[in-house]
């Protein structure tokens, strides 16, 4: 191989795309020719410097929110111009909150009549493998920005599509919030249990929901629930946890999926949001 031919393959060698058929010749020339060797080393070093010194950064949250907001605006424009009478009937701004409030009252009454248990041990869940504790920790990490969702979108359908393409093998229930700035999603597996995490950001409020197959959680030796939660879920499919005064924790079962929501929203608002699913 001469210098000219070496130059033609220089980039391939640095980027590790050098064909096997010329590897030996290339190496032989590299060992013999000082000029070409210097050039090769410099170019390789240049690539290494760029890789080491220029770090990839994540999209800043404000920029991400701006993009999602712009898309939401486009979406709203397109939707409002295309909607039919049937859509309008069910998207009336007054109708949805009315239904939501009614359902929230029903859930709240259920909570008052079924959940109360005088025994503190029943609601105790200090275990590190407790699903509520885990959800609470993840909620705190998402809020602080330490845990970044793998996927962020402006509408719940996009998040549902994301989970369909992921390893999650159950239908993830994504709550539609009319004023939600973004929806974040993560598909993870913990101790053999597949879990879908959905984060919601709406104004100053946050909500984090962890979803997993109810039977998988119950059968898992690595996950636990406080006895009060097990009882309430069996009785009414709902449980509101009293042990976190700084935020609200609600659990419910739907279509065999156990959902755990942690939120800064007030209880009534949170229940209204969750019951519009």
């Amino acid at each position: 191989m001469d210098c000219r031919s070496f130059q033609e393959h220089l980039g391939d060698a640095i980027d590790r795309f050098l064909p096997q058929s010329v590897e030996q010749e290339f190496q032989a020339h590299l060992d013999l020719c000082r000029k070409c060797r210097d050039e090769f080393e410099l170019e390789r070093l240049c690539k290494q410097v760029v890789q080491r010194k220029i770090k990839r950064v994540g999209t800043p949250p404000a920029t991400q929110a701006l993009v999602l907001h712009s898309l939401q605006e486009q979406y709203a424009k397109a939707s409002s111009s295309a909607e039919g009478w049937w859509d309008r009937l069910f998207t009336r701004r007054a109708l949805v909150p009315a239904i939501a409030s009614g359902l929230a009252v029903v859930v709240f009454v259920l909570f008052l009549t079924v959940q109360r248990d005088p025994s503190e041990a029943l609601t105790d869940h200090s275990a590190s493998n407790d699903l509520i504790n885990q959800s609470f920790k993840n909620f705190a990490l998402v809020r602080s920005g330490e845990l970044k969702p793998d996927f962020v979108a402006s509408c719940p359908e996009s998040v549902a599509s994301y989970f369909k393409k992921s390893s999650i093998d159950f239908a993830v229930h994504v709550v539609r919030m009319p004023d939600c700035e973004w929806y974040g999603a993560m598909a993870v597996e913990h101790a053999g249990v597949k879990m879908a995490h959905v984060a919601y950001r709406t104004g100053d409020d946050w909500m984090f929901v962890c979803e997993a197959r109810h039977d998988a959680v119950m059968q898992s030796a690595s996950l636990s629930l406080p006895p009060a939660a097990k009882r309430a879920l069996t009785a009414s499919n709902w449980y509101i946890d009293p042990a976190h005064p700084e935020c609200n924790v609600v659990m419910w079962i739907t279509d065999g999926v156990l959902c755990t929501a942690v939120s800064t929203m007030k209880k009534e608002k949170l229940l209204a949001v969750l019951t519009t699913r």
Binding site: A76, A78, S79, S80, E83, T91, P178, D179
Partner: peptide, 13 residues
């Protein structure tokens, strides 16, 4: 950012 009320139509969803 002011909230946007996304009125949903099935055709664009």
């Amino acid at each position: 950012i002011p909230p946007v009320l996304a009125v949903v139509s099935r055709s664009t969803k």
